[in-house]
Design a protein around this nucleic acid. Structure first.
Lengths: 362, 362
DNA sequence: AAAGTTCTTGCAAAGCTGTTCATTTTTTGT
DNA sequence: ACAAAAAATGAACAGCTTTGCAAGAACTTT
């Protein structure tokens, strides 16, 4: 039997055997004291807990996971923290997971276009309970491997078609279509578009939906420049558009960051007015969009609801592995602020044009 | 001996025993094939690797950690993703860690003032290799427990005095002192201050340093309102200051977010000009500070360097446990943009007043 | 009250999966 | 063919949970 080395201080943290020895019980008893739903005499429990406290013992979660063949670690894969709507997403995701006793293991890729395959493999090696992918793609092959390994895969913010994976996602197409409508309705029809990285699912929806609806309404897109979702690219693209099309009267940017860049180019470089000369609409409704300096009209992305849905799935005993419904689509709604000429709103849309105090937190 | 159940598909992922059986070798050999620096005949290695591929086997990292008594997981504790300089920090931290084969386990607290003790305990239970704490406090008692457990603790962005923990931190005091100087030098002396949450180390330095230097220069602080580091609180505080002190000519906000709020209040609610009527200075130099709509004069926080230092520490075999130097202080430098009247700069400070194109990424 | 039945609790041992170390087996060199 | 080197093995270990079993406590039944 293992002798207890009291003097071996700090070498390694106390194990259940140490506690058992000190409390004069077996290791199984110690284990029971630390798992609820088990019966152990109050007397004994006290003794064990006291011993544990003395030795600074807490069960080794690694060993527990190994033994129980179940993990409470969820891999969260992402590539881009700079994306200004990541903070809200991470905030909601980590808080929600913590409430469910899940711990996120953060795996970061280098680029949104990069395949997450390597990261998924890593997550699998850690035998995580589930994998949440957020601004990355994955190969069909890897998605299937996850499924074979019985590890549920949830794509947050993109739809993975024809795969066994679950998707929780904004219906970017419908939001983009709505942007086309308000431009037309407010009488701006010399429209330029600034899109994001090609290859991203999000971008193709935001771009495609807009073009499609504009076409249906009988208008052409005046110009289109591809950016990379960054402020800077929006800034540059707007300058280019204005140079190419002097009579441009509206810009649709596929995310808010590019819209901000475009606005600053319009106002501070070219000295034009928004929306009087050029209207601007973004996409995402990040907190900054409500700030006084921008007050951007944009499509609100219901991040909180989407994350809530994700958490609900993770909460299931099967972590969503046996889900019948594969795709959860959320509709974004228009938030009208001061970068467009006012239009009549539909139900569910919000109007902050007259409420400058309603600036969201930081 | 364990029979191999080939038909037991997907029940659990393949273990080294399965691979061993298929390749006709022992588990020890399989193990050696997956650890470099070991000798195994090329022939055999091929066979094992082939078997592994067939079964989709990858070593269970949890089991490996348990056995080797060493982890490559580092707990990252934080409380506030909304903090606009968190993205840059997380970005640098996760990238740097990944390059060192370390994986961050993300533990989020609920409030910056909250003690991280519970989270640290959780991290300890996962037997992580190290703990990085970023916008949270911890009790003396808990810090010592970490040390007893031989788990290094690094405070990023606050100094933990009189503890065995390491701190990597901005010298907020010197930055704050510099702000006082440029106000005085540019002739603005009716100054209001908007501070952040009391109890945060950062805030007390940013507040204290400013007051101290202002006092040394023979000026009084006209007014002081406490915010909570959010845009909204800055907005509100600025309105209050302007109402209380009509002749106010400068506002120092203890972080950029509050400075933005203050600027918008000054410009869009009160219709005053920045810096002509009121100068504004922030702290952090978050990306938005360079954007055209704000162009905020602020103290740049060398996040990249600080994170780099943190990574260097984590890279050490002892993860920084036996570090002689306990505190790594970094000086922030002034970035002069358009919210202050120009002053002569010192060495190391940057002047972006004449370079509107130099807007940082998103 | 005595005997039978059920509940509680503690114990020993097995299992999860990968690594390591002392050994045995195989290969290589001369 | 013999010593030395190389390769592969078996057993032990890391730290926890779980299960089958046995003993004692509590409760029923006649």
């Amino acid at each position: 039997m293992s002798e207890m080395d009291v003097n071996d201080k700090g070498r390694r943290s106390a194990s259940s055997a140490d506690v058992a020895a000190l409390a004069g019980v077996s290791r199984a008893t110690v284990s029971r004291c630390f798992t609820d739903g088990t019966s152990v005499k109050g007397d004994t429990r006290q003794r064990v807990l006291a011993a544990a406290r003395t030795l600074g013992y807490e069960p080794n979660l690694l060993a527990r996971m190994l033994n129980k063949q179940e993990s409470n670690i969820v891999a969260v894969l992402t590539s881009d923290f700079a994306n200004p709507f990541q903070p809200a997403l991470m905030e909601a995701l980590t808080s929600g997971m913590r409430a469910e006793q899940l711990t996120p293991l953060l795996l970061k890729g280098t680029s949104p276009m990069e395949s997450a395959d390597e990261l998924i493999q890593l997550a699998l090696s850690y035998r995580v309970a589930a994998i949440v992918v957020t601004v990355l793609n994955a190969s069909q092959r890897m998605i299937e491997r996850c499924f074979e390994a019985h590890v549920p895969l949830i794509f947050l913010n993109r739809v993975a078609e024809d795969t066994p994976a679950t998707s929780v996602c904004l219906n970017s197409r419908s939001g983009a279509r709505r942007v086309a409508e308000i431009f037309v309705e407010s009488g701006t029809t010399r429209i330029g578009m600034i899109s994001g990285n090609t290859g991203s699912w999000t971008n193709s929806m935001r771009r495609g939906g807009f073009r499609e609806r504009l076409d249906e309404l009988g208008h052409d897109l005046l110009g289109h420049i591809q950016g990379d979702f960054s402020y800077q690219s929006g800034h540059k693209a707007a300058l280019q558009l204005m140079a190419d099309f002097p009579r441009l009267d509206a810009i649709y940017a596929c995310n808010d960051a590019m819209a901000f860049g475009a606005m600053d180019a319009i106002r501070f470089v070219r000295g034009a007015r928004v929306p009087d000369d050029i209207s601007v609409v973004g996409f995402d409704d990040v907190p900054v969009a409500a700030w006084g300096a921008y007050r951007l009209t944009t499509i609100h992305q219901p991040v909180a609801q989407m994350v809530e849905q994700t958490i609900q799935i993770l909460k299931r005993p099967d972590r969503g592995l046996g889900l019948s419904e594969q795709v959860f689509l959320y509709d974004g709604h228009l938030v009208q602020r001061d970068t467009t000429r006012p239009v009549t709103l539909r139900e569910g849309e919000s109007d902050e044009t007259t409420d400058p105090a309603k600036t969201d937190a930081r």
